[in-house]
Design a protein around this nucleic acid. Structure first.
Length: 117
RNA sequence: UGAGUAAACCGGGCAGUCGCGAAAGUAAAUGUUGCUUUCGAGGAAAGUCCGAGCUCCGCAGGGCAGGGUGCUGGGUAACGCCCAGUGGGGGUGACCCUAAGGAAAGUGCCACAGAAAAAAACCGCCCGGCACUCAAUGGAAAACCUCGUCUUUUUAGCUGCAUCCGGGGACGACGAUCUCGCGUUUCCUUCGUGCGAAAACCCAGCUACAUGUUUAAGCUAAAUGAAGCUUUCCAUUGAGUGCCGGGUAAGGGUGCAACGGUGCGGUAAGAGCGCACCAGGGGCCGGGCGACCGGCUUGCUAGGCAAACCCCACCCGGAGCAAGACUGAAUAGGAGGGAGAUGAUGUUGCCCGCUGAAUCCCUCGGGUGUGAGUCGCUGGAGGCGCCAGGCAACUGGAGCCCUAGAUAGAUGACUGCCGCUCCCUUAAAGGAGAACAGAACUCGGCUUACAGGUUUGCUCAUGCA
RNA sequence: CGGGGCGUAGCGCAGCUUGGCAGCGCGCUUGGUUUGGGACCAAGAGGCCGCCGGUUCAAAUCCGGCCGCCCCGA
């Protein structure tokens, strides 16, 4: 497919996609971040981010989403396998994380999920 | 200099690298991708409390109901907003707060307390009459007996509490009913018992009766002797009590609030009954568009609550961008029941009126996956400074500028320098920190949150000249 | 975008209409009863009625503004 480009990050958008990953995927977690991974039939990795209202107000949730997105973009070159749906969920204590902390969390979880070495 | 008050404003700046969204241009492999340029969160974007634009609803008509607003004038597209003023309240002041129409249209409420919570009555005060009692004075009559007081004792009755025994009731065996017993608790008490330290016995109080003691005791007079201090009736005066008739609304420990307030006069007692001042109301005159203000006059004196019902004046058709329009696809828009030209549905609730149909309602099941896309979607009651009108809010004129538009939702990360605050330090260097908060159709307001900072006007206090 | 409800003792709830005493049940504390426990009996503690302001003589109650939680409809 021609839409697979180096820059774009494909995203999960619909609720049923998230539900499928929750049901059939494997979970890894740190104190502030949960990661679900499930194999899909596409040729690229797709990312979904879910942040509950319990984490904080609208500004905090938006900022956290951008941090996760930026961290995933930064770590993407180290991911060796393709064809997975990845869902990042923020837990309650994630409200005041910094950028380097999100990178650390995500790196640990992706290595545990055997998507990178 | 310090304290305060009102208003306006900022919400770190510059540069670089990587990344995201949109528009325009350009190139190609043309429903896509690359490159270049430009733009890309706020003063509150928030809460969704008001008002409008815009869109749709078989036009929006009448009545009732319902809701909102509530000093006056102006501004505005409109408002529950803003400006200017009026009245009231607060502050030394600058200034701030104010849902502020009507209580004489009616209904209702004003707990407790208090005579009484709005209509008068009650107590009280005063006058007159009658009856009774007491005192003084005067007159008449009778009597010299005793009367009275105090103390003590005793008897009977009334006033209270506790409890043994007794009696009645309730509950109780993780078990109904009956009987007996037991336990806990409660109630009653004629009789019986007890009642200590404030209290019941004692004592104290009241009533009745009896008894005891004393007996010319006591007082006036130096002593003695004598006399008086006694009772009844009448008259007058004064005082008190009760009843009846009348006058009065001054006073009545209360209460948030008492039918104007204070003082003087006046009166049988009193009262705006009269007078002076003060508060309010009515009338007249003057000023102001008006709310209202000022002056004169008049004894006219009417409790509070309408953010209680209500009355009055004004306003309100409904739904909301998931409004709505266009294009395309579709055996995955189903099953059952009901209503319907004898009028479904819609028109906020009800009635009238209008409209006039494969439509509407209920239940079950499925679905929210291209079962979608495009438009609406950002140029607007827009912004900036200038001129003119207006005290101001605001309005008018010419000029310049274009300044987010996502659709699971774009603003992020890192680095350097400068600026601000804090820590350490003589300083430099170093370290840490920077609030409240994220557009979703768009505006005008209101409300709420907010680190730090800038400017201007004004007030008060202190110091110096 | 529109609409509705709730907030009162540790917990579950009344009281708000029509303003004046803040109450009920469970729980807690102390004492009694029992050899001991439960049950029972008696006594008691515990509340700024979510927060702020206003109306009123007086506010849990009436009015306005905030905060939090929950539930509907499109």
């Amino acid at each position: 497919m021609s839409k697979i480009k180096a820059g774009k990050i494909e995203k999960l958008r619909k609720n049923y996609q998230f539900q499928k990953v929750y049901k059939e995927g494997k979970a890894q977690a740190t104190g502030r971040t949960i990661l679900f991974i499930k194999k899909n039939n596409e040729q690229c990795n797709r990312l979904g981010i879910s942040i509950s209202k319990k984490v904080g107000k609208s500004v905090i949730r938006h900022h956290l989403k951008r941090l996760y997105l930026e961290a995933f973009r930064f770590l993407r070159k180290d991911i060796t396998k393709e064809g997975f749906d990845i869902v990042i969920i923020a837990r309650k204590g994630a409200g005041n994380m910094t950028y380097s902390e999100t990178v650390n969390d995500l790196q640990k979880l992706l290595a545990r999920g055997k998507l990178m070495k």
